[in-house]
Structure formats: C-alpha cells, structure tokens
Design a binder for these strands. Structure first.
Lengths: 231, 231
DNA sequence: AAAAAAATCGACGTGGTGTAGATTTTGAAG
DNA sequence: CTTCAAAATCTACACCACGTCGATTTTTTT
C-alpha cells in the first residue's frame, strides 16, 4: 500500500523529505505572509490554482468519469507527470477544489450565526437563500462534491463538516423557534441536522435536473422548515 | 466505442446474436414459466444469483473501490472472463444487485398505498418503519446503491424511480392530512418528494455511522413528517 | 449418440494511474 | 553576470483493472 520507506539513500542532506512532492507544496501553502511584502508568489502557486481552475472547467462539460488526470494537466498547460508535483493523486485535486468552494458556505453559515435578534423564521429564510446562492454560483463543484463524497473520505469529511457547521447554526434557530433543546432524536439538534440534509438534497436534485429550478427548491425547502418550526 | 458489427461471419445460422452475451441471458431471464413444470432451471441461472450473492458478500467487508470484477467472479467460483457471459460489465452486476433489493421497497410502498382508511399520521408511521426495516436488512446494498447512484445512470435511475414511487404514495397521505394538493413548489407533491429524500438521507447517514442507530433515525424522521403534517 | 447451445477459460489489447530519474527553469546570493 | 541549489517540468516505465475474443469444455436437446 505505502511506498517503501526509501531511507536516507541519497548522499548528504539525508533527513529532508527526499521525494514526497505534495507535502513540500502543502507546507508551503500553509505559510503566512509576514510583514515583508507579497512574500514571493512562487510560480508554482499560480499553477496550483490553474490546475484547480482547469478541473473546475472540465467539470462544466464532462462528467466525473471523463475527468482524467491527463485532461486536468493539459488544461493547466503542463504534462500529466508534472501534476503529481502539486497533488499526490487525482482525489487530492478534487478535494482541494471542493475545499476551495466549501469555504464560501462555511462563511455563509458563520455570518448567519451572528444574527440572534431577528425572528427565527426570517433568519432561516436568509440562510436558505444563502445556500441557494452558493449552489447557483458553484453548481458543478457542489455536484461533484456530493457525487464523490461517498467514494473519497477526504471529500466526504469536508462535506460532512460543512453540513455539520450549518446544522449547529440552525439548531440555535430552531431552539429560538421554540423547539425543545434536547439531545434525543426529536430534539432541536437532530431535527436541524436532518433538515440540513434535506436542504442539501433538495438543491442537489435541482442542480441535477436540466431545468435547474432553484427558486422552486428554495420555496419547498423554506416551506418545510417553516412547518417544522410551527408556521 | 461500440464493437464492430462483425456481420454474419460464422457459417450457417447467420442472423442470431453471434456473440452478444448478456443480451442472450437477459432475454432468457425474462421468460415466463408456462404450464410445463419448473421449466428447465438452467445452470447459469444459479451462477447468476451466485454472482450477485458474491457481490453482496464482498460489499459487507470491502468498500466499493475494492469490489473488483476478479473478486466477484472468484467469489462465485468462476473466472473473471466468465463473468462477462452473465453481465456486460461491472456496473450491470451492481445494477442487478440493487434492483434485486429495491423490489422490496417498491412492494412496501405499494402495500402502504392500499390503506386509505387509517389516519394519515398512522399510515406515515408505518411507511417509515417499513423503510427502516429494509435498511436494517439490506444496509450494505442500500449504501452501495446510494454511493453509486451518482456515478452510474442505471443505478441512479432505479434509485430515483423507487423514491418517486414512494413519494407518489406519500403525496396522497399528505393530501389526506390536509396539505393543499397543488402542483407548485409548496404543494403536497413537492413536499412529499423532499421529505422522501430526507427520509432516504437520514437512514443513509444512520447506515454509514458505526452506531447504526436506526431507531433514532426513525424517530427523527417521523417527528419531522409529523410536524409538517400539522402535528 | 450426435449436434446444438450454454458455459467457461486464458490470453490479449487498452486506458488510466502513479512513480522514477533525468533535465530544464527559476531566482537569490555572491 | 555567474553560480548553484531548489523548484518545476518532462518522458519513460511498470502496474492494475477492465472488457473482448476465439478456442474449448460442459450441458442440454433431439
């Protein structure tokens, strides 16, 4: 499964990560831009984004099956082999792309969380509209995320975490709407969770259908949340 | 993409489907046992079931990624190449397996549909419990069906049809519960549809979690249906 | 018992993946 | 402006799983 340790074979240096490519990149991208200036915008950082852009563009026209490493690399103007300098494998590309998009939703949820003064129903409506916007703007990536989340743990986890974050916010809203704040299967948390998945599914279905009737998806979703919250 | 027509190359017979393997099987399995007797239980029919059993067993222990054609064939005691006599490709095996299981749910929905006399809430509760039972008994196949449905049209369609059938039944129940029978996004049909997907998701999530807390899933699902139906 | 149909096998070609090592490009220090 | 190490890129390779083909064996029918 894992490559042989390939111990300190090369001369000198020795204990540096000899070949592990992506890890090197990964660590770099985590660096913070200190005082200085734009802190060396490495050429590779652009390529990395270009690869994600290429992948996203590919998804617009072809399905997940057709999304080949070759195509992504070519789309970014490099050879297949070079891609592996940036990402360990195909899944990591997808994961990075999904992550880039999910950040939006998390921000969405976070900003909604602030508002503890408006009536719960109103907050809920704004939240659902926010979700609609994200699906509208990034439907391809969102769809891919859902489709892949079952198959690739990294993506699945990212997706779950996002929904969980949203559910936590909505739990508070449900509580404020008068739903008992128990921990059981009928408490606010459980209901919020289930309803968040309903929201996800409804928009996913809308995104899959050729009509892409997002307003209808929103209306239905809101109607259900409303009824659950006691009109 | 498609194999060359390979016209009537062989001597005699000529216009029979020379090599197309699965189609031959397919047509056979569709045959009806007329008066006669048990009408020749072909050896291959058993193998076909054995293959599905093997696939199902494989799914218990390994993920979808590890579910290789080689493994399925070996599990049924034949060689990889022989499998293609029964199924055109890997997806068809999965599709057949899923189909075999989904028949159960459709029957479930159909039987629920009969009861137009009991109070709607009661009917709904029985329906949800029915769904729970299916997930309990066939969780592996159900999970696989959901996981694969995005990637393989055949499975996706089968799954959608099943949910649709269920939704049609539940639409009536919602109507009887007093929800306006409009065609719009807030009518009974749309709500039933969305709620059926919520049900699916909730049980799917339960099946994925290590605790497999189906009672909780049922409780949450019922609670939401209840609230939507106006308590 | 002979012939036809059903079932099985092993070998092949293909396409996509990930890896290795050699090679060029980049850019910072002297 | 040279030098040199790190970054980035390429080509070639080995691998694995898939699906196909033609030959062969087994089962069923006549």
């Amino acid at each position: 499964m894992n490559p042989p340790p390939d111990g300190g074979k090369g001369p000198g240096k020795a204990l540096a990560p000899v070949h592990r490519k992506y890890s090197a990149r990964k660590s770099r991208s985590g660096e913070i831009t200190v005082g200085r200036r734009s802190a060396a915008p490495r050429k590779g950082d652009l390529r990395e984004q270009a690869l994600l852009d290429a992948a996203e563009a590919l998804l617009e026209h072809t399905g997940l099956e057709e999304l080949t490493v070759e195509a992504i690399a070519k789309g970014a103007g490099i050879s297949r082999g070079s891609l592996y300098f940036y990402f360990g494998n195909k899944q990591e590309v997808l994961a990075a792309l999904v992550e880039r998009t999910l950040r939006t939703i998390r921000a969405e949820a976070a900003s909604t969380a602030q508002d503890a003064t408006s009536p719960p129903v109103e907050v809920m409506e704004r939240a659902v509209h926010g979700v609609e916007r994200v699906w509208r703007e990034h439907d391809t990536v969102m769809r891919a995320a859902v489709d892949y989340s079952a198959l690739h743990p990294v993506i699945g986890t990212a997706w779950n975490d996002t929904v969980d974050a949203f559910a936590r916010t909505m739990t508070q809203v449900l509580t404020r709407a008068g739903i008992p704040d128990e921990s059981g299967p009928e408490g606010a948390a459980a209901l919020a969770h289930a309803l968040c998945w309903l929201t996800e599914r409804t928009f996913y279905r809308a995104a899959c259908s050729p009509e892409k009737d997002y307003p209808a998806a929103t209306a239905t979703t809101v109607a259900i949340w409303r009824r659950v919250m006691g009109n």
